[in-house]
Amino acid sequence: MPDPRDPRGVRHALVAVLALTACAVLVGATSVLAVSEWIADAPPHGSRGCARIATARW
């Protein structure tokens, strides 16, 4: 079920943000814009290993 709240109020775990940023850089993102686009295109529970790392419970 999608979150009906305004996305500006959603807080993300630091480990998720850092993991997804690292994954984006590893696949070739060279700017903040490229990182944000890669993260926006990443599936929330997809088959990419980075998405699994970012959503794991530590």
Results as ranks from 00 to 15, higher is better:
1 M>C: 03
2 P>D: 10
2 P>Y: 11
2 P>H: 04
2 P>E: 15
2 P>K: 11
3 D>Y: 02
3 D>M: 00
3 D>N: 13
3 D>E: 03
4 P>S: 07
4 P>T: 07
5 R>W: 00
5 R>N: 09
6 D>T: 01
7 P>A: 04
7 P>L: 05
7 P>G: 03
7 P>F: 06
7 P>N: 01
7 P>R: 06
8 R>C: 08
9 G>K: 08
9 G>D: 05
9 G>S: 08
10 V>Y: 02
10 V>T: 07
10 V>R: 06
10 V>Q: 08
11 R>I: 01
11 R>Y: 03
11 R>K: 03
12 H>G: 01
12 H>I: 04
12 H>N: 05
12 H>A: 06
13 A>K: 07
13 A>I: 00
13 A>P: 04
14 L>S: 07
14 L>N: 07
15 V>F: 07
15 V>L: 10
17 V>I: 08
17 V>R: 06
18 L>G: 02
18 L>C: 09
19 A>D: 00
19 A>T: 13
20 L>K: 02
21 T>Y: 00
21 T>W: 06
22 A>C: 06
23 C>L: 02
24 A>P: 01
25 V>E: 15
25 V>K: 09
25 V>H: 10
26 L>D: 13
26 L>N: 14
26 L>V: 09
27 V>A: 14
27 V>F: 12
28 G>D: 11
28 G>C: 13
29 A>V: 10
29 A>W: 02
29 A>C: 14
29 A>F: 12
30 T>Q: 10
30 T>V: 13
31 S>P: 09
32 V>I: 12
32 V>H: 12
32 V>K: 10
33 L>W: 14
34 A>H: 15
34 A>S: 13
34 A>Q: 15
34 A>E: 15
35 V>F: 05
36 S>P: 01
36 S>N: 07
37 E>S: 11
37 E>Q: 15
38 W>Y: 13
38 W>Q: 13
38 W>H: 14
38 W>F: 14
39 I>T: 05
39 I>D: 00
39 I>N: 08
39 I>A: 11
39 I>K: 08
40 A>D: 11
41 D>G: 11
41 D>V: 12
41 D>N: 15
41 D>P: 06
41 D>Q: 15
42 A>S: 13
42 A>E: 13
42 A>Q: 15
42 A>N: 09
43 P>L: 05
43 P>K: 08
43 P>E: 15
44 P>V: 05
45 H>S: 12
45 H>M: 14
45 H>L: 12
46 G>V: 08
46 G>C: 03
46 G>D: 12
47 S>A: 15
47 S>N: 09
47 S>L: 11
48 R>V: 12
48 R>K: 06
49 G>T: 15
51 A>P: 02
51 A>D: 04
51 A>R: 14
52 R>T: 11
52 R>P: 00
53 I>E: 01
53 I>A: 08
53 I>T: 02
54 A>E: 00
54 A>T: 06
54 A>V: 03
54 A>Y: 04
55 T>E: 12
55 T>H: 07
55 T>Y: 00
57 R>G: 04
58 W>V: 11
58 W>C: 04
